[in-house]
Design a protein around this nucleic acid. Structure first.
Length: 501
RNA sequence: GCCCCCAUCGUCUAGAGGCCUAGGACGCCACCCUUUCAAGGUGGAGAUCAGGGGUUCGAAUCCCCUUGGGGGCACCA
């Protein structure tokens, strides 16, 4: 019994892209759901644009998302996995050369001596005539003598594949039957550059055949090119695999998602504090749904429910708001230790950026979790949320200090009274339950609305009007610093008053 | 220009002829909870199912046309 073999084949010409990640995920889900094999192959034949740094970003990103491949290239000292190594195309050059020789020998491909200038001129001429660009076939029927003449002049030929006539039918798993006349393929296409390096349409087919890929699951942008691949599979003597073309992820203006209009690097989402569970969950639901009303699903749950046949046809706009909501859902589901661990790097970033002056200890962070976990849409927001706890000198805007219903003298009065009250609570009783009653009593005694007093205290000790619950915040801050900040704020306000501003 | 694909609330989607006077989620608006902010709860606004023809007793669902949108047409991947 043969099992499904699928692959993700990114090119290291940029950081891991959201579209690549989504395609990888769908391949992964299909492989795991069917008990098949998920293969990673690096398409690095565009040497000029490929880089090792991008390769690392892509591998790290896929790993971070939890998409482990069963077969793939050697990385960081670890040997390649799988029987079809190498899994980097630049290491497979001899295979392409061998395949190209075969096509050449069988006259299914031919050398083309046209120069870039000639091809360009032809393309422009067609465009001017409002005709679709296509290769006219100038070199398709060169005699041996003519070829020899070009060679003698020192021309290095590219290799073109003979497209022939007729039409190709694709039975796409998500789109159904698609028929394309090969006359619309743009003429015979180049499979090997003049410098001898093979091109994408060629390598992808040679490798998919060699690696026994059974299902090619990729973006819809490849649908129009699929006939080229089918033709090549046949020319090489292989049965084409099954195809499944996924709907594209779109910019808000409904064009194919692009770096120019959207945030496309997975690494950027990670850096903002989106967590892998949320990203995976969100990406899976772009173009696919379970058919039920479930939508917060783990990778394992997605695997369990995934079905290629249920994939949608229409493109899907990337909606960051919805991703943020899912991120919050997943952050709230994390175990305390897990969340603490994931928060660490973001706190270190805050420290490095000078936004805070020290790192909280583990126990400190743990005590805080109940009040911050549900207030964190992204891990990167930790500094905005409670960074004031770990700064030496708090900057408070005097304008924010005065509650709406209060004036400046009342506020100074309130802050000083609160300071005295809290000082009386003392170190040993410094707990939320012990802090609240005396402050409420103070408000009542003075005829203040408790909320107004709390707001003045809140701003005085945090510098913000929006914070986690006040008493938990005061506990986290500690008695000493609470009194200190209350005093500083009161002094600040009364000084402002004296200077008449 | 040519070829291909697509078309349900702003967005992601459910819907595979009668269960749909179209369901859910995000976002938005109210209210509840409440020391602020979140979270949570309740309710609401929001889609003549792009338009027009068919087929059928019956169409969001099937067919055709139109319109709109997208993608592809490289010695990029």
């Amino acid at each position: 019994m043969t099992t499904d073999r699928v692959r993700i084949a990114p090119s290291p010409t940029g950081p891991l892209h959201i579209g690549t990640a989504r395609t990888a995920l769908f391949n992964y889900l299909h492989a795991r759901h069917t008990g098949g094999t998920f293969i990673l192959r690096l398409e690095d034949t565009d040497v000029a644009r490929s880089s090792i740094a991008y390769e690392k970003d892509i591998l790290d990103g896929l790993h971070w998302l939890g998409l482990r491949w069963d077969e793939g290239p050697e990385v960081a000292g670890e040997a390649a996995r799988g029987p079809y190594a190498p899994y980097r195309q630049m290491g497979r050059l001899p295979l392409y050369a061998e395949a190209a020789d075969r096509l050449l020998a069988e006259d299914k491909a031919y050398p083309c001596y046209c120069t870039a200038e000639e091809l360009d001129a032809e393309r422009r001429r067609l465009e001017a005539e409002r005709r679709p660009p296509r290769y006219g076939g100038r070199c398709a029927r060169l005699t041996a003598d003519e070829r020899a003449a070009f060679e003698a002049e020192g021309h290095r030929p590219a290799l073109r594949f003979r497209v022939g006539e007729g039409s190709v039918v694709i039975d796409d798993i998500v789109r159904g039957r698609v028929e394309i006349d090969v006359a619309n393929l743009g003429g015979d296409f180049v499979i090997v550059r003049a410098d001898g390096t093979p091109l994408y349409h060629f390598t992808v087919v040679v490798d998919d055949a060699a690696m026994r890929i059974t299902h090619v699951i990729r973006g819809e942008d490849h649908l129009s090119n699929t006939p080229k691949h089918v033709l090549l599979f046949r020319a090489l003597g292989h049965e084409p695999p099954a195809f499944a073309h996924l709907p594209l992820i779109l910019n808000p203006d409904r064009t194919k998602i692009s770096k120019r209009k959207s945030q496309t690097a997975i690494g950027d989402y990670r850096a903002e504090g989106f967590i892998q569970e949320a990203l995976v969950n969100y990406l899976a639901l772009l173009g696919w749904s379970t058919g039920t009303e479930e939508e917060v699903l783990s990778l394992d749950e997605l695997v369990e429910r995934f079905d290629l046949r249920a994939v949608n046809k229409a493109g899907a706009v990337f909606d960051r708001e919805r991703l943020e909501w899912l991120n919050g859902q997943w952050i709230r589901r994390l175990e305390p230790d897990d969340l603490i661990g994931r928060l660490r790097p973001f706190l270190e970033d805050q420290l490095a950026a000078g936004r805070i002056d020290r790192l909280p200890e583990e126990g400190e962070l743990r005590a805080l979790l109940p009040v911050i976990q549900e207030r964190l849409p992204r891990l990167g927001r930790i500094g905005d949320l409670v960074g004031f706890l770990w700064v030496d000198e708090l900057h408070v805007d005097p304008a924010d200090l005065v509650p709406k219903r209060w004036d400046r003298p009342t506020t100074v009065d309130g802050l000083r009274a609160a300071r005295e009250t809290l000082a009386a609570v003392g170190e040993v009783s410094w707990e939320a339950d012990e802090i609240e009653p005396p402050l409420r009593a103070l408000a009542e005694a003075r005829g203040w609305k408790a909320g107004d007093l709390f707001m003045a205290v809140r701003v005085a000790v945090t510098g913000r009007r929006e914070t986690p619950p006040l008493f938990d915040t005061l506990v986290a801050l500690g008695l000493r610093r609470t009194l200190e900040r209350l005093g500083t704020a009161a002094d600040l306000l009364s000084l402002e008053a004296l200077s008449g501003t």
